[in-house]
Design a binder for these strands. Sequence first.
DNA 1: CGGTATCCTTACGGATACTG
DNA 2: CAGTATCCGTAAGGATACCG
Lengths: 122, 122
Amino acid sequence: MLDSPQCPDCHRINDVLSRVGDRWSVLVVISLSRYHILRFNELKRKLGISQRMLSLTLKGLERDGLVSRTYHPTIPPKVEYTLTPLGLAFHEPLSALGHWALQNLDAIDAARGGYDAAAGKR
Amino acid sequence: MLDSPQCPDCHRINDVLSRVGDRWSVLVVISLSRYHILRFNELKRKLGISQRMLSLTLKGLERDGLVSRTYHPTIPPKVEYTLTPLGLAFHEPLSALGHWALQNLDAIDAARGGYDAAAGKR
DNA sequence: CGGTATCCTTACGGATACTG
DNA sequence: CAGTATCCGTAAGGATACCG
C-alpha cells in the first residue's frame, strides 16, 4: 500500500507521526511541557486517560527518547516523568499546532455548521 | 472521562486534533499543499490510500473548511481538490511538525535502538 | 503508588462490488 | 472518473482485577 507512493517522504513523515503523533502522546508531551515534571497518577488524573493507555503511551515515549522516567524505590513507590531535550524540541512544533488548533477552533466549527446546514436542507 | 480533566484546554486541543489530526488528513493536506490542486484519483495514487478512506477524509476536510471541492460536470466527471485559506494556514504548523519529524527520525530510531538493546539483555 | 494482565467492545480501515 | 454501499478482519482502547 504505502510501498510505492509518489509522495516521496509522505510515508516517512507518516511513520514518525504514527509513533509520536497519536492522541495521548501529544497530550502527555504538552502536559509535561507545562508542568515540567509529573508523577504517573498526576498525569492520569490530568488527562483523564486510562491506566493502561497511560502506561503504554509513556513506555512508547520513553522508548522514542522523548520522555525520561525516574523511579524512586520508596514506600509507596514514586515515579516521575519529564521531557528529555528531544521531547522538549518536539514540543516546539507541537505547541505551534496546539495554538493553531485553539485559535481556529471557532473557524472550524463555523465551517462545520455551514456545511451541515447546506447538507441538511435537501 | 474527558469531562473533568485538570488540563484546561487539553481536551479542546485533543478535540481539534482528533478531527484534522489523523493519519490520512495530514497526508492529504501536505500533498495538496505541495501540488496546489489535485484530482481524486491523483490523490489516491499519490498516497496509496483506499478509495473509501480518501472519500471519507476529503469529506471531513471539506466539512471542516480546510479543503474546497470543485466538481466539473464533464464526461467523464472531474473533481478537483485544493486547500482553502484555512487549510493553507493549517499547513504551516503541520509542515513544521513534518520537518521536525524528518530531521529527528534518526535520533528517535537511535533512542529506540538503545531502549530495545537495554531491554533485550534481561 | 505504579504498574501488568486479561477481557471485551467499538471503530478504523482495506477489499470488493456497484452507480451516475 | 468519482464516488457510495457492504462486508469483514484487525487493532485501539476502556474496565476490571491483580501484583510488587
